[in-house]
Simulated scan of single mutants.
Amino acid sequence: MIGIAIRACFGKPAFEIMQQGQTPAGMKNEAFPEKTMIFGLFRKKNNNQAIVDRQYAALTAAARMPEIYERLNVPDTVMGRFEMLSIAMILFFRRTRASATSGQEIAQEIVDAFFQDIDYSIRELGIGDNSVPKRMKKLAGMFYGRLEAYSKAMDTGDAEALAVALQRNIYPETSAPADMTGLAGWMMAAESHLSAVPEEVITTGSVTLPAVA
């Protein structure tokens, strides 16, 4: 199921999103230093696979909620959907950083699955093996740059700074970007919702994100 989830979310090969990011490749993730390196982590524990599949599908579904694109000024484009799937995973990642080892393992496997899908999509497009690591490093920089920027704002409860970071990433080439305060508010509400999720829900891969109010 994971193998097709990201392509279902984006509607076209996931590799295309890599051409539009603004975060420099190789950006160090200060908020989650233990998560900075992903390469070489594309491995699964067999007993976690069904849990990871279920949770990854739930995060993908959250990233595709129509209300996000209709009411929160997120463009319904390949890049817009990438941004929302990244946000869904970042929210989950932030919740599980305080989890027991099992919850943290599931979170890392979900992020690994995301990058593995990207890796697969690159190779499907016929990109040479020598170019794949460079492309993956660029995408990793994009994702972890967003993780760091959003976490910095959310850790201090600064919705305004979060909205600015969202504008910068979602509308990188627009002189008058759309208002992202609604999306920032939803992210803050989602974090509050996730903080109340018990550990047994994490370990069964049953976490959901709240609807848009």
Rank of each mutant, 00 (worst) to 15 (best):
P66K: 09
E83G: 01
R71N: 13
D76V: 04
R71K: 15
E70S: 12
M79R: 06
G80P: 09
P75G: 06
R71L: 14
A62T: 04
A88N: 02
A63N: 08
A62Y: 06
I68V: 12
A58K: 14
M89R: 05
M89V: 06
T60L: 05
L59A: 03
L72A: 05
M65T: 13
P66D: 09
V74I: 15
I87G: 01
P75C: 05
E67V: 10
T60N: 07
S86W: 04
L85A: 10
M89C: 07
D76K: 11
Y69Q: 04
R71P: 05
P75W: 06
V74S: 09
V78F: 11
L85E: 10
E83P: 00
L59V: 00
V74H: 10
M89S: 02
M89D: 00
L72E: 03
A63F: 04
A62H: 08
I87P: 02
A58S: 13
M84K: 09
P66Y: 08
R81F: 11
P75H: 05
E67C: 05
S86G: 06
L59E: 01
V78I: 13
G80R: 12
I68R: 06
D76E: 13
P75N: 06
Y69F: 15
A58G: 03
E83A: 12
R81T: 01
A63Q: 07
A58T: 06
D76W: 06
M65K: 14
M79C: 01
I87D: 01
A63C: 11
N73W: 05
L72F: 03
S86K: 04
L85D: 03
A61W: 00
M84E: 05
M79I: 02
A58F: 07
L59S: 03
A58L: 15
R81H: 12
M65E: 13
M79E: 14
P66S: 08
A62R: 03
N73C: 12
N73H: 14
S86H: 09
L72R: 03
Y69C: 03
L85H: 11
R81Y: 10
S86Q: 12
A63G: 15
E67Q: 14
V78C: 12
